[in-house]
Design a protein around this nucleic acid. Structure first.
Lengths: 188, 188
DNA sequence: CGACAGTGTTGAGGGACTTGAACTCGGCTG
DNA sequence: CAGCCGAGTTCAAGTCCCTCAACACTGTCG
């Protein structure tokens, strides 16, 4: 099993994804993206930007002639837009459905936005939009869920069906802060 | 905005998380964890293992005297178990709720297991277990959802409420393979 | 005891990403 | 048109994680 090694073979790394998003955002906001603006926006040095642009150019994601502005290629723009959409959907799922703090949601979304595969994003989008719709099944479910629906059905010393030998709830609760208080064992 | 920079400041990196999980798994399976076993399991060189063990030891996650077996510290065991639980919950959410292919779910879970924060995991666990329970609201909702509930409510040229200026569905569909066929615009 | 096989470590080196210092480019300004 | 200044680049260096090659340890068997 070496699924885990594919981590380094992702189309874009976390850094790359954010450089691409920065370029796209600057183009949108000011019409052009310069090295210094990218550096400021990302909080990195200009030399770091130059060198990352070299990498991104080598991969065919940006065009950048020395001392000039940065342009996204078709592929680069697609990646930037996809990452941005992923982030947005994740953020909405985390805040609106899971009711997690805005700031936590933002951070988590930012961490994983570039790692979630298209099929998963597509289904997550569908789930989120359905849950946010006014379909009666959705409203009924969400209401129950928000009132404190199940956690760890089947929870028992030595293992629950979902989280395995060491209950996730037990492992997580001490670190989850106030969220903890909403969890209890009484399902439905 | 430099949330994105905290990526490198996570408690454990992707690699570390998998080394810790490997040690925990080997201890569980054979009672002890040796350098070579860890290397085989992860598909890395033994020297890589030695050097990572040095790093993990420096952080207080493992004990390892030269030429001896590897032991997890309390903290290390906690991290390994938490990551493992995260993976399991994510996997179940992806396969059972989002109905994503087993292999895709496995890969995605593996990519993000160490990045998702405890409050999010806790709520995701609650959502997943509630949706899998036999509560009537859950069954009704899931049934509708599986029949093809909404995607991109509000979808319109130029932007949908959820996925932003560039619709996630449009960006994703060409790459999502067969999943695509299950998506259409007709909500409920 | 002593050599061998298996196991583990060290060390040199590489790729990705970052920084800071020093240098270059290009356009304003006096 | 000379000088200056802001913007961008190059270069050396550092960190993380990995590899391969060479060396060191350990336990077993003759």
């Amino acid at each position: 099993m070496d699924t885990w090694k594919r981590y380094g073979e992702k189309e874009v790394s976390h850094s790359m994804a954010h450089y691409l998003q920065a370029v796209a955002a600057l183009k949108g906001e000011k019409g052009f993206a310069r090295v210094g603006d990218i550096a400021d926006r990302l909080g990195v040095s200009k030399s770091g930007v130059t060198s990352m642009l070299r990498t991104l150019h080598a991969r065919g994601y940006v065009d950048h002639e020395p001392y000039g502005c940065v342009e996204l290629t078709e592929v680069g723009r697609g990646l930037a837009e996809r990452t941005e959409s992923n982030r947005r959907v994740l953020q909405v799922f985390l805040t609106d459905i899971l009711s997690v703090d805005e700031s936590v949601a933002e951070e988590d979304a930012c961490m994983i936005e570039h790692l979630v595969s298209p099929p998963v994003m597509l289904e997550l989008l569908r789930l989120t939009s359905f849950l946010r719709s006014d379909a009666p099944e959705a409203r009924a479910f969400l209401e129950s869920f928000r009132r404190g629906g199940a956690a760890c059905v089947g929870h028992a010393p030595g293992g629950c069906d979902l989280c395995g030998p060491v209950c996730l709830r037990d492992a997580l609760s001490p670190m989850a802060g106030e969220t903890l208080t909403r969890i209890d064992d009484t399902p439905r």
